[in-house]
Amino acid sequence: MKHLAFAAAILSATAATAQTPELTVYTYDSFVAEWGPGPKVEAAFEEVCDCDLKLVGVEDGAALLARVRLEGERSDADIVLGLDTNLTAAAKETGLFAEHSVDATYDMPVTWDDPVFVPYDWGYFAFIHEAGTDAPKSFRELADSDQTILIQDPRSSTPGLGLLLWVKSAYGDEAPEIWEGLSDNIVTVTKGWSEAYGLFMEGEADMVLSYTTSPAYHLIAEEDDTKAAAPFDEGHYMQVEVAAKLAGTDQPELADQFLQFMVSDAFQSIIPTTNWMYPAVMPEDGLADGFDTLITPEKSLLMSSEDAAAIRDEALSEWQTALSQ
């Protein structure tokens, strides 16, 4: 009798799960971490969707795209969240993504009209240094100074690629010259952001490539105001993080609902203090205290995804040549 009741309970439980639709979102690893946006986003969306939101973490943006390409049309994912504009051209080319139906007014320094990719947050790349020290005001000034920097490898890291495009969009054909100037300032090049930031915290260099929002983390989460971002005269290159629906999804309506939810207040208000980036749509309550202390670049730089894809290999080989001497 007991066994029967147990079996019945299991059966009804499976029946219940079968009725609840499941939406699978592939994203990068730090998004799903306990202190990242993932858990809160999952709770908030499940409250309104009557579904089960399954977040899957895959290293970072580049690995995410590689994963989706590997799985191809039979991918289990319904949504991919966490690519940036440097990857979207390649992503679009795969033909694996479908157009979205999201309607939103974005609060970003650039206009956004991509039919496939929906932005959910953005930030500026910047060099972080100890507050109170004199930081250079441009790449040229940095190259002429004896300040030391830590950067990430563009071949394995998203910020590293961002820096490559930052120098390229600010200096164009003069980029190789800038890199040659910077080569004696670069302490080392790391595999990813964590390694570089960890080395910086150990005091291995004066500055590290990160985001203008990094000091906000130290200020808000650790009440530590000793970190600052250095404003550069050339302007700052942006990173816009986006999500898109897969064409092969078996939950197209739910996927659309998620993308629309993504630009709503419930999602956007989670982003600033969990992902430490600017929300794509400003939440009603604005940003947390501390964000107002951050630098606001006067000029925003961002290549279109097509330009970024077209110029990437050339910029990489210039970088390699200049730094291998």
Binding site: D29, S30, V32, A33, W35, G36, G38, P39, L55, V56, G57, V58, G192, W193, S194, Y197, G198, S214, Y217, H218, A221, W276
Partner: peptide
């Protein structure tokens, strides 16, 4: 990786990846 199952080295990387 799945958000709910992580090994210790992965968790250390996650902590570093979010400034901690």
């Amino acid at each position: 990786a799945d958000p709910d199952i992580a090994t210790l080295p992965l968790q250390i990387y996650r902590l570093m990846g979010s400034y901690q």
